[in-house]
Design a protein around this nucleic acid. Structure first.
Lengths: 159, 159
DNA sequence: GGTGAAATTTCGAGTGT
DNA sequence: ACACTCGAAATTTCACC
Protein backbone atom coordinates (compact mmCIF):
# COMPACT_ATOMS: atom_id res chain seq x y z
CA UNK A 1 0.00 0.00 0.00
CA UNK A 2 1.45 3.31 -1.04
CA UNK A 3 1.69 6.01 1.60
CA UNK A 4 1.08 9.29 -0.12
CA UNK A 5 2.72 12.24 1.55
CA UNK A 6 0.14 14.65 2.84
CA UNK A 7 1.33 18.20 3.15
CA UNK A 8 -0.43 20.70 5.44
CA UNK A 9 -2.60 21.90 2.55
CA UNK A 10 -3.79 18.35 1.84
CA UNK A 11 -4.67 17.90 5.50
CA UNK A 12 -6.60 21.16 5.47
CA UNK A 13 -8.58 19.93 2.47
CA UNK A 14 -9.26 16.55 4.07
CA UNK A 15 -10.29 18.14 7.33
CA UNK A 16 -12.80 20.39 5.59
CA UNK A 17 -14.20 17.63 3.36
CA UNK A 18 -14.65 15.37 6.39
CA UNK A 19 -16.91 18.07 7.83
CA UNK A 20 -18.67 19.12 4.63
CA UNK A 21 -18.37 16.96 1.56
CA UNK A 22 -20.59 19.17 -0.59
CA UNK A 23 -18.65 22.39 -0.18
CA UNK A 24 -18.17 24.14 -3.53
CA UNK A 25 -14.66 23.93 -4.88
CA UNK A 26 -14.50 27.72 -5.07
CA UNK A 27 -15.35 28.03 -1.38
CA UNK A 28 -12.91 25.25 -0.47
CA UNK A 29 -10.25 27.14 -2.41
CA UNK A 30 -11.04 30.32 -0.47
CA UNK A 31 -10.77 28.57 2.88
CA UNK A 32 -7.35 27.08 2.18
CA UNK A 33 -6.02 30.19 0.43
CA UNK A 34 -5.55 28.76 -3.06
CA UNK A 35 -7.33 29.34 -6.37
CA UNK A 36 -9.95 26.82 -7.55
CA UNK A 37 -7.83 25.06 -10.18
CA UNK A 38 -4.99 23.75 -7.99
CA UNK A 39 -7.51 23.04 -5.23
CA UNK A 40 -9.51 20.80 -7.54
CA UNK A 41 -6.32 19.12 -8.71
CA UNK A 42 -5.44 18.23 -5.13
CA UNK A 43 -8.92 16.90 -4.39
CA UNK A 44 -8.83 14.71 -7.51
CA UNK A 45 -5.39 13.41 -6.56
CA UNK A 46 -6.58 12.54 -3.05
CA UNK A 47 -9.55 10.73 -4.57
CA UNK A 48 -7.39 8.78 -7.02
CA UNK A 49 -4.87 7.80 -4.36
CA UNK A 50 -7.78 6.48 -2.30
CA UNK A 51 -7.14 8.78 0.66
CA UNK A 52 -10.69 10.02 0.08
CA UNK A 53 -12.60 6.76 -0.07
CA UNK A 54 -16.09 8.10 -0.77
CA UNK A 55 -18.58 10.87 -0.14
CA UNK A 56 -21.74 10.02 1.78
CA UNK A 57 -24.84 11.65 3.22
CA UNK A 58 -25.48 10.93 6.91
CA UNK A 59 -29.16 10.61 7.83
CA UNK A 60 -30.93 11.11 11.15
CA UNK A 61 -31.79 7.59 12.40
CA UNK A 62 -34.85 8.85 14.29
CA UNK A 63 -36.33 10.40 11.16
CA UNK A 64 -35.93 7.26 9.07
CA UNK A 65 -37.34 4.96 11.74
CA UNK A 66 -34.07 3.36 12.88
CA UNK A 67 -34.15 4.49 16.46
CA UNK A 68 -32.77 1.38 18.18
CA UNK A 69 -29.06 0.61 18.09
CA UNK A 70 -27.71 -2.62 19.52
CA UNK A 71 -24.08 -3.68 19.93
CA UNK A 72 -23.74 -7.46 19.65
CA UNK A 73 -20.82 -9.63 20.67
CA UNK A 74 -20.74 -12.89 18.78
CA UNK A 75 -18.63 -15.99 19.35
CA UNK A 76 -18.42 -18.79 16.80
CA UNK A 77 -18.30 -22.53 17.48
CA UNK A 78 -15.06 -23.56 15.90
CA UNK A 79 -12.55 -21.17 14.54
CA UNK A 80 -12.27 -22.43 10.98
CA UNK A 81 -11.46 -20.10 8.14
CA UNK A 82 -14.57 -21.10 6.23
CA UNK A 83 -16.89 -20.39 9.17
CA UNK A 84 -15.43 -16.95 9.69
CA UNK A 85 -15.57 -16.14 6.00
CA UNK A 86 -19.22 -17.19 5.73
CA UNK A 87 -20.22 -15.25 8.82
CA UNK A 88 -18.63 -12.04 7.55
CA UNK A 89 -20.30 -12.58 4.19
CA UNK A 90 -23.72 -12.84 5.82
CA UNK A 91 -23.13 -9.67 7.80
CA UNK A 92 -22.18 -7.76 4.66
CA UNK A 93 -25.45 -8.87 3.11
CA UNK A 94 -27.61 -7.60 5.99
CA UNK A 95 -28.47 -3.90 5.70
CA UNK A 96 -29.33 -3.54 9.41
CA UNK A 97 -25.72 -4.51 10.26
CA UNK A 98 -23.83 -1.24 9.83
CA UNK A 99 -20.48 -2.36 11.20
CA UNK A 100 -18.85 -5.74 11.76
CA UNK A 101 -15.44 -6.19 13.36
CA UNK A 102 -13.31 -9.30 13.79
CA UNK A 103 -11.70 -8.97 17.21
CA UNK A 104 -8.90 -10.36 19.32
CA UNK A 105 -9.84 -11.94 22.67
CA UNK A 106 -12.91 -13.77 23.92
CA UNK A 107 -15.29 -12.14 21.51
CA UNK A 108 -14.96 -13.14 17.88
CA UNK A 109 -17.09 -10.42 16.31
CA UNK A 110 -18.65 -7.18 17.37
CA UNK A 111 -21.64 -5.89 15.39
CA UNK A 112 -23.40 -2.57 15.32
CA UNK A 113 -27.03 -3.15 14.38
CA UNK A 114 -29.66 -0.49 13.62
CA UNK A 115 -33.35 -1.44 13.63
CA UNK A 116 -36.71 0.32 14.16
CA UNK A 117 -37.57 -1.28 17.54
CA UNK A 118 -37.10 -4.22 19.89
CA UNK A 119 -39.53 -6.31 17.90
CA UNK A 120 -37.41 -5.93 14.79
CA UNK A 121 -34.29 -6.70 16.82
CA UNK A 122 -35.79 -9.88 18.16
CA UNK A 123 -36.50 -10.95 14.60
CA UNK A 124 -32.89 -10.17 13.61
CA UNK A 125 -31.60 -12.23 16.51
CA UNK A 126 -33.78 -15.25 15.78
CA UNK A 127 -34.11 -15.21 11.99
CA UNK A 128 -30.66 -13.95 11.06
CA UNK A 129 -28.02 -14.45 13.75
CA UNK A 130 -29.30 -17.68 15.29
CA UNK A 131 -29.82 -19.23 11.88
CA UNK A 132 -26.20 -18.81 10.81
CA UNK A 133 -24.27 -22.06 11.26
CA UNK A 134 -21.45 -21.89 13.78
CA UNK A 135 -22.82 -19.09 15.96
CA UNK A 136 -22.27 -20.32 19.50
CA UNK A 137 -23.17 -17.34 21.59
CA UNK A 138 -24.44 -13.78 21.26
CA UNK A 139 -24.52 -10.99 23.81
CA UNK A 140 -26.65 -7.93 22.98
CA UNK A 141 -26.06 -4.53 24.52
CA UNK A 142 -28.74 -1.91 23.93
CA UNK A 143 -27.52 1.62 23.28
CA UNK A 144 -29.34 4.15 25.46
CA UNK A 145 -27.69 7.26 24.09
CA UNK A 146 -25.28 8.05 21.31
CA UNK A 147 -22.95 10.45 23.11
CA UNK A 148 -20.66 10.87 20.13
CA UNK A 149 -20.69 9.79 16.53
CA UNK A 150 -18.23 11.09 13.99
CA UNK A 151 -16.68 9.73 10.83
CA UNK A 152 -13.79 12.22 10.95
CA UNK A 153 -10.34 10.75 11.43
CA UNK A 154 -7.75 12.97 13.14
CA UNK A 155 -5.03 14.11 10.75
CA UNK A 156 -2.46 15.52 13.16
CA UNK A 157 0.37 13.10 12.63
CA UNK A 158 -0.42 11.60 9.25
CA UNK A 159 2.76 10.80 7.28
CA UNK B 1 -39.76 15.45 16.75
CA UNK B 2 -41.68 15.62 13.52
CA UNK B 3 -41.86 12.50 11.38
CA UNK B 4 -41.81 13.65 7.81
CA UNK B 5 -43.52 11.29 5.42
CA UNK B 6 -41.03 9.86 2.99
CA UNK B 7 -42.54 8.77 -0.30
CA UNK B 8 -40.76 6.26 -2.54
CA UNK B 9 -39.08 9.08 -4.48
CA UNK B 10 -37.66 10.55 -1.27
CA UNK B 11 -36.31 7.13 -0.29
CA UNK B 12 -34.72 6.75 -3.69
CA UNK B 13 -33.01 10.12 -3.27
CA UNK B 14 -31.81 9.27 0.25
CA UNK B 15 -30.54 5.89 -0.87
CA UNK B 16 -28.50 7.43 -3.67
CA UNK B 17 -27.11 10.26 -1.52
CA UNK B 18 -26.08 7.77 1.17
CA UNK B 19 -23.96 6.09 -1.50
CA UNK B 20 -22.70 9.19 -3.29
CA UNK B 21 -23.14 12.56 -1.65
CA UNK B 22 -21.43 14.48 -4.45
CA UNK B 23 -23.63 13.33 -7.30
CA UNK B 24 -24.71 16.25 -9.52
CA UNK B 25 -28.34 17.20 -9.17
CA UNK B 26 -28.88 16.64 -12.90
CA UNK B 27 -27.59 13.09 -12.63
CA UNK B 28 -29.61 12.45 -9.49
CA UNK B 29 -32.68 13.68 -11.37
CA UNK B 30 -31.93 11.29 -14.23
CA UNK B 31 -31.61 8.31 -11.89
CA UNK B 32 -34.93 8.90 -10.17
CA UNK B 33 -36.76 9.90 -13.35
CA UNK B 34 -37.52 13.54 -12.55
CA UNK B 35 -36.24 16.83 -13.92
CA UNK B 36 -33.59 18.72 -11.94
CA UNK B 37 -35.86 21.42 -10.46
CA UNK B 38 -38.25 19.24 -8.42
CA UNK B 39 -35.35 16.93 -7.54
CA UNK B 40 -33.41 19.79 -6.00
CA UNK B 41 -36.53 20.95 -4.13
CA UNK B 42 -36.88 17.51 -2.58
CA UNK B 43 -33.22 17.40 -1.55
CA UNK B 44 -33.46 20.85 0.04
CA UNK B 45 -36.61 19.82 1.90
CA UNK B 46 -34.93 16.66 3.23
CA UNK B 47 -31.99 18.79 4.38
CA UNK B 48 -34.23 21.34 6.12
CA UNK B 49 -36.30 18.67 7.83
CA UNK B 50 -33.06 17.20 9.15
CA UNK B 51 -33.54 13.81 7.49
CA UNK B 52 -30.23 14.51 5.78
CA UNK B 53 -28.03 15.45 8.72
CA UNK B 54 -24.80 16.24 6.89
CA UNK B 55 -22.54 15.34 4.01
CA UNK B 56 -19.09 13.95 4.80
CA UNK B 57 -16.03 12.54 3.07
CA UNK B 58 -14.88 9.13 4.34
CA UNK B 59 -11.11 8.64 4.37
CA UNK B 60 -9.02 5.47 4.26
CA UNK B 61 -7.68 4.98 7.82
CA UNK B 62 -4.55 3.20 6.54
CA UNK B 63 -3.62 6.11 4.29
CA UNK B 64 -3.93 8.71 7.04
CA UNK B 65 -2.00 6.66 9.58
CA UNK B 66 -4.92 5.52 11.75
CA UNK B 67 -4.52 1.82 11.28
CA UNK B 68 -5.37 0.59 14.77
CA UNK B 69 -8.97 0.43 15.92
CA UNK B 70 -9.82 -0.50 19.50
CA UNK B 71 -13.24 -1.07 21.03
CA UNK B 72 -13.24 -0.14 24.72
CA UNK B 73 -15.80 -1.05 27.35
CA UNK B 74 -15.78 1.38 30.25
CA UNK B 75 -17.49 1.20 33.63
CA UNK B 76 -17.71 4.17 35.96
CA UNK B 77 -17.39 4.15 39.76
CA UNK B 78 -20.67 5.56 40.88
CA UNK B 79 -23.53 6.21 38.60
CA UNK B 80 -24.11 9.88 39.28
CA UNK B 81 -25.48 12.19 36.62
CA UNK B 82 -22.51 14.55 36.90
CA UNK B 83 -19.95 11.78 36.42
CA UNK B 84 -21.68 10.50 33.32
CA UNK B 85 -22.03 13.98 31.89
CA UNK B 86 -18.37 14.81 32.43
CA UNK B 87 -17.21 11.53 30.93
CA UNK B 88 -19.27 12.03 27.78
CA UNK B 89 -17.95 15.58 27.53
CA UNK B 90 -14.35 14.36 27.65
CA UNK B 91 -15.01 11.78 24.95
CA UNK B 92 -16.52 14.44 22.66
CA UNK B 93 -13.35 16.47 23.11
CA UNK B 94 -11.01 13.63 22.08
CA UNK B 95 -10.56 13.32 18.32
CA UNK B 96 -9.31 9.72 18.50
CA UNK B 97 -12.67 8.71 20.01
CA UNK B 98 -14.93 8.36 16.96
CA UNK B 99 -17.97 6.88 18.69
CA UNK B 100 -19.18 6.78 22.30
CA UNK B 101 -22.32 4.97 23.40
CA UNK B 102 -24.06 4.91 26.76
CA UNK B 103 -25.28 1.33 27.20
CA UNK B 104 -27.67 -0.77 29.26
CA UNK B 105 -26.20 -3.66 31.24
CA UNK B 106 -22.82 -4.26 32.86
CA UNK B 107 -20.91 -1.93 30.61
CA UNK B 108 -21.57 1.77 31.03
CA UNK B 109 -19.92 3.01 27.84
CA UNK B 110 -18.57 1.54 24.67
CA UNK B 111 -15.98 3.52 22.72
CA UNK B 112 -14.57 3.18 19.25
CA UNK B 113 -11.04 4.56 19.23
CA UNK B 114 -8.79 5.08 16.18
CA UNK B 115 -5.05 5.59 16.67
CA UNK B 116 -1.85 5.09 14.64
CA UNK B 117 -0.44 2.14 16.67
CA UNK B 118 -0.33 0.34 20.01
CA UNK B 119 2.03 2.91 21.42
CA UNK B 120 -0.47 5.68 20.77
CA UNK B 121 -3.24 3.53 22.23
CA UNK B 122 -1.27 2.93 25.40
CA UNK B 123 -0.89 6.68 25.78
CA UNK B 124 -4.63 7.16 25.26
CA UNK B 125 -5.37 4.56 27.93
CA UNK B 126 -3.00 6.05 30.51
CA UNK B 127 -3.13 9.77 29.78
CA UNK B 128 -6.77 10.11 28.80
CA UNK B 129 -9.01 7.31 30.07
CA UNK B 130 -7.25 6.52 33.32
CA UNK B 131 -6.98 10.20 34.22
CA UNK B 132 -10.72 10.78 34.06
CA UNK B 133 -12.25 10.75 37.55
CA UNK B 134 -14.76 7.97 38.14
CA UNK B 135 -13.43 5.49 35.59
CA UNK B 136 -13.45 2.18 37.46
CA UNK B 137 -12.60 -0.31 34.78
CA UNK B 138 -11.74 -0.51 31.10
CA UNK B 139 -11.64 -3.49 28.78
CA UNK B 140 -9.94 -3.03 25.41
CA UNK B 141 -10.67 -5.20 22.40
CA UNK B 142 -8.35 -4.84 19.42
CA UNK B 143 -9.98 -4.97 16.01
CA UNK B 144 -8.17 -7.37 13.68
CA UNK B 145 -10.27 -6.74 10.62
CA UNK B 146 -13.07 -4.41 9.65
CA UNK B 147 -15.40 -6.84 7.87
CA UNK B 148 -18.05 -4.23 7.22
CA UNK B 149 -18.34 -0.50 7.68
CA UNK B 150 -21.20 1.49 6.27
CA UNK B 151 -22.98 4.68 7.24
CA UNK B 152 -26.06 3.82 5.16
CA UNK B 153 -29.28 3.28 7.08
CA UNK B 154 -31.84 0.92 5.49
CA UNK B 155 -34.93 2.78 4.27
CA UNK B 156 -37.29 -0.12 3.60
CA UNK B 157 -39.92 0.53 6.23
CA UNK B 158 -39.41 4.21 7.03
CA UNK B 159 -42.73 5.90 7.85
C1' DG C 1 0.42 27.10 -8.33
C1' DG C 2 -2.08 30.63 -11.32
C1' DT C 3 -5.02 32.43 -15.44
C1' DG C 4 -8.75 32.59 -18.48
C1' DA C 5 -12.37 30.55 -21.15
C1' DA C 6 -15.54 26.82 -22.33
C1' DA C 7 -18.70 23.35 -20.58
C1' DT C 8 -21.68 22.17 -17.05
C1' DT C 9 -24.57 22.81 -13.16
C1' DT C 10 -27.43 25.36 -10.06
C1' DC C 11 -31.57 27.54 -9.10
C1' DG C 12 -34.68 31.16 -9.69
C1' DA C 13 -39.20 32.72 -12.23
C1' DG C 14 -43.02 31.67 -14.86
C1' DT C 15 -46.31 27.95 -16.76
C1' DG C 16 -48.93 23.93 -16.94
C1' DT C 17 -51.29 19.75 -14.91
C1' DA D 1 -49.55 20.87 -4.61
C1' DC D 2 -46.35 19.03 -7.63
C1' DA D 3 -43.66 18.89 -11.79
C1' DC D 4 -41.96 21.11 -16.16
C1' DT D 5 -39.31 24.57 -19.28
C1' DC D 6 -36.43 28.37 -19.78
C1' DG D 7 -32.56 31.34 -18.83
C1' DA D 8 -29.26 33.84 -16.02
C1' DA D 9 -25.72 33.26 -12.53
C1' DA D 10 -22.41 30.44 -10.47
C1' DT D 11 -19.40 26.59 -10.59
C1' DT D 12 -16.59 23.11 -12.50
C1' DT D 13 -13.00 21.88 -15.39
C1' DC D 14 -10.07 22.34 -19.04
C1' DA D 15 -5.54 23.80 -21.81
C1' DC D 16 -1.80 26.71 -21.17
C1' DC D 17 1.52 29.91 -18.62
Amino acid sequence: MSRPDLDPTDRQILSILQRDARIANTELADEIGLTPAPTLRRVRRLEEEGVIHRYVALLDPKLVNRDLMVLVRVTLDKQTKQLFHDFAEQMRARPEVLECYLCLGDTDYLLKVCVPDLDAYQRFLVDVLASIPGVRNTDSTIVVKQEKYTTSLPLDDAP
